[in-house]
């Protein structure tokens, strides 16, 4: 078991600064319009604003499951970053989504993810997607991530002033 204190608890501003803008720098997150709403030690909340380009079913206007998959993957990743003791590259091992009910057409979708267990190698995460009421989810998700997954030297793009 890993009991390393999260970087978020030691330096929340640094994590907020890194990840607040970080998702906007990822091309596909920008393409979907993902926005960071909130984050805390081991958890994060993202939002995807409704747009006609994201529709999966042209007869109903419901968002494509792939949009929710990207939202969940990104939110789970954010939760892991907010739980890690230091900045590391991570990679999704697997992701499961249960689509509990169709999202209301035209309304934004939020996702809240929590990294509920961190080992030396693996991070376990669960998440819910909702619209107006977090207690009334449209989808739930579980995911596992690998830690320190990347062979790349810099897991994050260089940023000005750092």
């Amino acid at each position: 078991m890993s009991d390393e204190t999260s970087l978020f608890e030691r330096d929340p501003d640094q994590v907020r600064r890194l990840h607040g803008g970080f998702f906007n720098a990822i091309p596909h997150s920008r393409e979907l319009g993902l926005e960071v709403v909130d984050m805390g030690p081991g958890w994060g909340v993202l939002k995807v604003p409704y747009r006609p380009e994201l529709i999966g079913n042209p007869t109903t206007g419901v968002l494509h499951g792939g949009v929710i998959t990207s939202l969940m993957d990104s939110t789970c990743g954010l939760a892991v970053f907010c739980r890690l003791p230091r900045m590391e590259a991570i990679a999704t091992l697997d992701l499961r989504l249960d689509f509990l009910k169709p999202a209301v057409i035209g309304e934004d979708v939020f996702a809240r993810a929590e990294c509920y267990r961190l080992t030396r190698q693996i991070a376990f995460v669960r998440a819910t997607a909702y619209q107006r009421d977090p207690e009334d989810p449209v989808a739930t998700s579980t995911a596992a991530f690998m830690r320190a997954s990347s062979s790349a030297k810099k897991p994050f793009p260089p940023r000005e002033g750092q």
């Binding site: 990822i26 997150s29 499951g65 792939g66 990207s70 939202l71 969940m72 993957d73 999704t92 992701l95």
Partner: peptide, 8 residues
């Protein structure tokens, strides 16, 4: 590629 894109 984004994991969400692969999933979608």
């Amino acid at each position: 590629l984004h994991g969400g894109v692969i999933g979608g």
